[in-house]
Design a protein around this nucleic acid. Structure first.
Lengths: 336, 336
DNA sequence: CTGTTAGCGCCTTCAA
DNA sequence: TTGAAGGCGCTAACAG
């Protein structure tokens, strides 16, 4: 069944023209009689012919492909970002190659040079040194999830996000607010630091001493954090988690402990991942898909040299209030 | 900065050998002195040279790339499958191109011919006619999520999954079991039908008349189903949802209605998506990542002709009991 | 074991 | 407006 795919020559023969003419038509290059153009198009269709990016790339030096590098495809977040990336690239007729790089230590060993026109990294929290490694690929690099001066970046304003979230809780009347952040070993990622900073600065402005708990990321971390909170002197009336995942862990641990949300404790996450809606979890919307779309568009523009290679795109965040946050009990009781 | 990437010639010059020797070394072809081999390797590394799949593909007729076609990357499920696909392909040194095809109506228009060695579709529920369209690409086609005779397929035993789930509920003592399935318009997908069939056959064996509610998929559908159930003559004591997503909708609707899980109603999902663990939702494990891995491995094998092009791989499911299912209240009360 | 030669399918000159 | 010729980077035959 897998017969040899038709080549440009087949199309040329069928249309009764030369190779170059077919090439011109398919590249939408000018200088072909409309009538001929139509005939060539038809022949190509009939043969279900598609230009081999392989061959054309050899000549033009462009592959028509962009590599998207993610740490993993399993967490919901990365799929959502890539969804946007793919869509945006598609608009510019670029294909998306996806590489899962377990850790960033082998980023330099990817078969990227000559195999993709650009590289988009998704939330890998790369150090400058690692960026250099990717630079050696010799193609433009677009970073998402981190801001690095002099490089193309797409990111959300993490700091503003947690700042707004914190204000949301303060405005509801909370003062005993615990912040749950992530730490892997002793390392705190850039975005985690930014989120923590946003929280702490607002707490500082309010004259309240921050109450920070750092645990490994993921919902296990959220559960561990609750364990720590529950064994302390006093309970918070609100918990702000660095990520929805951690908030989910908190949610579960509180539920299992019989602590009602939001009656006893208000809970907020960050990321607006799908299930937060189902759980009625108040969260900070960060629209990962939009991050992807912006990154894809920026990449296409950089390739066409219509935007500089060090453009920064900052996406806004917004609070999505749901039922997991409410005024603390004391306030409600005293005001009723 | 983006200097011209080094080519094979550069490596050859640097190592003081001919092009073919370099080619042989990098292809791990036999017939090169170990000493020379080593020298070439080093030169290539120093130039951070990577073979252009573009150029080599031109000659070999193989691209070193496999296209994964998904309806969308946003739902958690597809990312999980692709995660496995990517990993498996990587073992065979194949890259993964990801295409999001909104609907299956344009599957034939993808730039696939000559641009990928094989196509893997993920849960697109393709009709035979649409498969034919993809066949015209001229490369092997591997389907996941559906079983089609004569084609390479990787799928879970949906029927057995819901059958086991139903038995689980029956064994707990439930008899008023509602099944929530999905229907888009009047169309029911193949896997939905299989799941429903598994449920109904076990109900039939037990001599209980099935109680089926069909709604649009997603958690909105789950909520709608609850709406229907709550307005009926009598409430079920257990609900089995076709998918975790629908189960999540049920979960939310029940929670909002103040109906306790599992005290008033037991709830089961299907899919074992990440959040079910957080929600303590009993579910049918289907390991999407494994589906992907199997599909990737099968694809690689088919390309190497070590497995036939119509291999079927059926993955087992298993029940993951959690806290959302329990014996119905009457039973518990009467036995206590 | 190593080097030479001839394309793979296409795009880009240049000439007609 | 069209066609012919050369070469992109690599591999697969062959010679040596």
């Amino acid at each position: 069944m897998p017969k040899r795919p038709s080549s440009m020559r087949d199309v040329a023969r069928r249309a009764g023209v030369s190779l170059s003419t077919v090439s011109r038509v398919l590249r939408c290059a000018p200088g072909v009689a409309p009538e001929v153009r139509e005939r060539v198009r038809r022949s190509a269709d009939e043969l279900s012919y598609v230009v081999s990016r392989n061959a054309s790339g050899l000549v033009t030096g462009r592959t028509g492909r962009v590599a998207a590098v993610v740490p993993s495809l399993e967490p919901w977040f990365f799929g959502a970002v890539l969804s946007g990336v793919g869509e945006a690239l598609h608009r510019s007729d670029l294909d998306m190659l996806v590489y899962q790089v377990d850790v960033r230590d082998r980023a330099g060993s990817l078969p990227l040079p000559r195999n993709s026109d650009a590289v988009i990294t998704v939330a890998l929290d790369l150090a400058e040194e690692e960026c250099r490694l990717l630079d050696r690929v010799g193609v433009p690099l677009v970073l998402t999830g981190q801001r690095v001066p002099g490089r193309a970046c797409v990111f959300v304003d993490n700091r503003a996000g947690t700042a707004a979230a914190t204000r949301h809780l303060l405005n509801l009347g909370h003062t005993r607010i615990a912040y749950i952040g992530s730490r892997t070993g002793s390392h705190i990622s850039r975005s985690s630091r930014d989120r923590l900073a946003g929280h702490e600065s607002v707490m500082g402005e309010a004259g309240i001493r921050p109450w920070t708990v750092l645990k490994p990321s993921g919902y296990e971390g959220g559960e561990l954090a609750v364990g720590e909170l529950l064994s302390g002197q006093t309970l918070p009336t609100a918990v702000l988690a660095e990520s929805d995942d951690m908030a989910l862990g908190v949610h579960r641990a509180l539920r299992r402990s019989g602590i009602a949300i939001p009656d006893a404790i208000s809970l907020m996450g960050f990321g607006n991942r799908d299930v937060t809606e189902v759980l009625d979890l108040t969260t900070v919307d960060q629209v990962p898909r939009d991050i992807g779309v912006e990154a894809g568009l920026l990449t296409a523009d950089i390739l066409e040299e219509t935007r500089p290679f060090d453009t920064h795109v900052e996406l806004p965040t917004q609070i999505i209030p749901r039922r997991s946050t409410a005024a603390p009990k004391e306030t409600r009781e005293s005001s009723s």
